[in-house]
Nucleic acid binder design. Structure first.
Lengths: 197, 197
DNA sequence: CTGCCATAAGGCAGTGGGTGCCAGATGTCA
DNA sequence: TGACATCTGGCACCCACTGCCTTATGGCAG
C-alpha cells in the first residue's frame, strides 16, 4: 500500500538513515574518537561490514544528506535570472536553502556544533566545501562568460563559500539568531570590498 | 666546530629532514596511497616507530616546514604599520613571504602539485589553513578594534586565505608566471568587491 | 676517560578503520 | 514457485597509529 519504491529500496533507505542517526547520536554523546564503527553498526543493528556498504568512511555517516542539499543548491542556482549579479544570486540562495524541508535550523545547529568540535569531521566538511566550490566555479564561469582558468569565477566561488562558513560559525555562537541574517550580512560585507576604517 | 646546537639536536634535525624528504619523493613517484609508512621509514633508514616520533601522521611529513612559515608570516603581520588597511598588509605579506629562504617557488610548486593531486594531503592542507585563519582572525580583530566574535575580522581572514588559495591554484596551472602577481591580482579583486558586469 | 643520567631509537603487541572475497539470505519478476 | 539480482554477514587481511618496555647514544659531572 505505501510504496513510492520497492520494498528493497525502502529498506535500504531505512538502514541508511538508521546508521546515520546512530552515528550522529553516538558522536554527540560519546565523542567521535570514542565511538567505533562497530559501536555504530551495533546501534543500527547491522554488521560492521554493512556499515561500509552505505558509507565509505566513519565520518561520512554524519553528512548523509549533504548530497541532496548540494543538488538542491545547484538547481536553485541554475534557475536564477541570467543578468543578476552573482553575489545577489548567491546571497538569495544562501537564504533560500534554509527554508527547505531538507534543512531545519535546529538539526543544522546540532550538526555544525559537532563538526566544529571534532577535527576529523571538520576535515570532511572542508572536503565537502571543496567539491561545492568546484561546482560553484563552473556556474560562475558560465555566468561571467569566462574560462574556468580565470581568477574571477574561482574567487567568487571561494570567497562566497568562505563568507558562508564564517556566517554559520558566528551564527553557531549566537543562540538566538537566525542563520539567514548572518549569511546576508557576510555576503554584503564581501560585496562592499571588506574596506576597513 | 660547527654547532649552532648540540650533536644530538643536529642529528634530530637531519633525521626529520630525511624522513620528510623521503616521504615527499615517494609520494611523488609512487602516489600517496601506494606508499606505506614502512616504506618511508625504510627510505629514511629509521624504524617505523621512529617515524611517528617525528610526525604524528603520514600526511604531516609533507608539511614539515609549515610551522616555520606560519611563524614568519605572523611576525611580518605584527610588523605592519598600525593604520594600514588590512588588505594592503595582507597583500604585501602575501608577496613578501615568497622572497624568503623558507620558500622557493620551484619546491613550492612541487609541493602544491602533490597536494592538489592527493585528497588526503588536501585535507591536511585545509586543516593547516584553518589554524592560520584562526590566527589571522585574532590579528585582524586587534587591528580593527573589534571582538573576535565579530563577523568582519573573521571575514577578512577567511576570504583573504581563500583568495590566496585561489591564486596559488591558478598559478600552479600557468607554468611561466610568478606567484606574487597572482596573489596581488586576487586580493585586488577581493578589495574591489567582486563586482561582475 | 669513565661512569651516570636523560633522552632518542627500536621492537613488539594490540586497536581500529577500511577492503576483498565468498557464502547465505531476501526482494523481484517471470 | 523457481531463477535471478542484489543485499547482507563473516572472515581474513592490510595499514595507520599507540603504549610499553628495552636498548643505544649523546651530554655532562667527576
Amino acid at each position: 500500500m505505501p510504496s513510492t519504491a520497492g520494498l528493497r529500496q525502502r529498506k535500504k533507505d531505512r538502514t541508511r538513515r538508521a546508521i546515520a542517526e546512530a552515528a550522529l547520536a553516538l558522536f554527540e554523546t560519546r565523542g567521535y574518537d570514542q565511538t567505533t564503527v562497530d559501536d555504530i553498526a551495533a546501534a543500527a543493528d547491522v554488521s560492521p561490514r554493512t556499515f561500509f556498504r552505505y558509507f565509505a568512511s566513519k565520518d561520512e555517516a554524519v553528512f548523509e544528506r549533504a548530497g541532496d542539499v548540494q543538488q538542491h543548491v545547484l538547481a536553485l542556482l541554475a534557475a536564477r535570472p541570467e543578468g543578476e549579479p552573482l553575489l545577489t544570486s548567491l546571497r538569495e540562495i544562501g537564504k533560500a536553502v534554509l527554508s527547505t524541508e531538507l534543512v531545519d535550523e535546529a538539526r543544522l545547529r546540532r550538526l555544525l556544533a559537532l563538526v566544529a568540535a571534532e577535527p576529523a569531521l571538520r576535515n570532511r566538511y572542508n572536503a565537502l566545501l571543496d567539491t561545492i566550490e568546484g561546482e560553484l566555479t563552473v556556474w560562475a564561469a558560465g555566468r561571467l562568460g569566462l574560462p574556468l582558468s580565470d581568477l574571477r569565477p574561482r574567487l567568487v566561488a571561494a570567497t562566497v563559500l568562505a563568507a558562508r562558513r564564517v556566517a554559520t560559525d558566528t551564527w553557531l555562537e549566537s543562540p538566538g539568531d537566525d542563520l539567514a541574517s548572518h549569511v546576508s550580512r557576510a555576503i554584503d560585507l564581501l560585496a562592499a570590498g571588506l574596506t576597513d576604517g
